[in-house]
């Protein structure tokens, strides 16, 4: 089984905070509001929430590698 990995492009992030609202254990914002990935390999149990966070991200800063959970 492929491990689910989350990537965040901090140059693209606009600090909307949707990922934090969707999957708080996995994402945070630094003092500038820019995304920080707390858990780069969030595990299958969080795959659904992480998938929603990636789909909801307004700037397209988030991406997934590995097993793709359903979006939205």
């Amino acid at each position: 089984m492929v491990t689910l990995r989350v990537r965040a492009d901090r140059d693209v992030c606009i600090g909307a905070g949707m990922c934090v609202l969707t999957a708080e254990e996995v994402f945070d914002q630094d003092d500038e509001g820019v995304v920080v990935v707390l858990m780069p390999e969030p595990g299958a149990g969080r795959a659904e929430a992480v998938g929603r966070a990636v789909a909801a991200c307004p700037s397209g800063a988030l991406s997934l590698e590995g097993d793709q959970p359903p979006v939205r």
């Binding site: 606009i14 909307a16 949707m18 609202l21 929603r52 307004p58 700037s59 939205r72």
Partner: peptide, 21 residues
């Protein structure tokens, strides 16, 4: 779900969305 576009989408996505929510 959070997937709607009421706050827009892309780089101009509403800055104040967290405040409004």
């Amino acid at each position: 779900g959070l997937g709607h576009v009421a706050f827009g989408h892309g780089v101009h996505h509403c800055l104040g969305a967290p405040l409004a929510r």
